[in-house]
Nucleic acid binder design. Sequence first.
DNA 1: TCCTTGTTGATTGTATACAACCATACCCCA
DNA 2: TGGGGTATGGTTGTATACAATCAACAAGGA
Lengths: 236, 236
Amino acid sequence: MKETSLTPERDETIYSHLHAAICDSRLLPGTRLPEDTLAETFGASRTIIRKVLQRLAYDGLIEIRPNRGALIAEPSVPEARDIFATRRILECGALAEMAGKVSAADLAALKAINAAEDEAQLKGDRAAAIRLSGEFHVRLVDLAGNAVLSELVARLIARSSLIIATYGSPISVTCRHSEHEQIIDLIARGAFTEAAQWMGEHLTTIERSLRWEQETPDLQAVLREFIDGSAAGRGK
Amino acid sequence: MKETSLTPERDETIYSHLHAAICDSRLLPGTRLPEDTLAETFGASRTIIRKVLQRLAYDGLIEIRPNRGALIAEPSVPEARDIFATRRILECGALAEMAGKVSAADLAALKAINAAEDEAQLKGDRAAAIRLSGEFHVRLVDLAGNAVLSELVARLIARSSLIIATYGSPISVTCRHSEHEQIIDLIARGAFTEAAQWMGEHLTTIERSLRWEQETPDLQAVLREFIDGSAAGRGK
DNA sequence: TCCTTGTTGATTGTATACAACCATACCCCA
DNA sequence: TGGGGTATGGTTGTATACAATCAACAAGGA
């Protein structure tokens, strides 16, 4: 891959690199992003880095705390629920507006993505599986032919990968292959209402597979348990 | 109006000033926004102005052309249609999730906004009427209790004011008072499904009241017609 | 031991200088 | 007279220097 594009739009390439790294869970929530480090890494000045960081903050992928620097966002539980609820509204709405706009080639492209995701899952490539799963949802919404809608959904899906990185269990974090297949079949049959209903349940399934409770390491309780254990069992 | 806030977060205040000016149609689509001029006006350096402009560009309220500066965005017809279609999906979806969350105080607040809009309309204060009409929609969606959804809708409504500024006829550009009233009534009765349906039709009504045709002065056609007219003496 | 307070190092916030670029206007040549 | 190449002014793009801020640490006193 090109290391740095010397000519134009360095900020664009830096942005996409960071965006990809976050969505692939190669940069985990909570990771700090000092401007100097990034500037050195990408061979750019802090001015460029700053522009990129602001854009990522708008996307909700990082958080910029005044005077304290940027870090990969850690979505709160309410925020995560809101994101999935909004995705349900948007993606189901997209399906409802898709009637008569879907070609056979579109369906074939979706199937290809689905197959690639399946393969990645079998090979144990978790990052690729998550990325392809997201791409399936994005491409699906694209079929509605609404650029504004597509962009909103793409952003929410990027944030969803942060949610999965924060709350997902190591296994079964991504969509079940069969559910995507089912949606494709329903669209092929022109059953858009049923497809939308399936999509709603599909997203609910993903949301349910997350572990909301583990948030907040609960330092107090952990330490107390440790002290109790050492006090009752072996002396200090 | 306050000229400059000397203390902190100048960018925030500058942003909100510009945002308000755009949404109130005091800055019309196509207006150029040179960095120097803005910097001088607000008493800040170009660094601050740049940050604000990027944020406005992200909101879709201005367009930044590389090396050529920023200008108030002029939404294209397809973009405008997409924005309204997306609003329909989101606002109707919000209504559907509102069951059991609406208090009497919420309804009273909506009625107050509606009354204020009505008053502004009677007084002929077009800017205030547009602003209050938008505020009604935003506050309504807030009742769903989904912060992510609220933010998306708020952004789309801000862009809608640009659409109205570009394509709206001088009269009847804003929502009809009675339609907002009707939605409040339906919510008060707990008829959220009907309210969502009404909202959909309401947004379609707004969209239909715009004049899509006048966009693109159609230079080619105009000139050809002119030439034909002078050449043929009258017409074809 | 705990709390307070001053210092220090690192990091971000802002302004400004300079380079790059585009659009206009001008001039020369056919 | 018109077309094309070229200066020029004005505007944006980028880097860097400096100021402001915060967190961590150390030292002093109760």
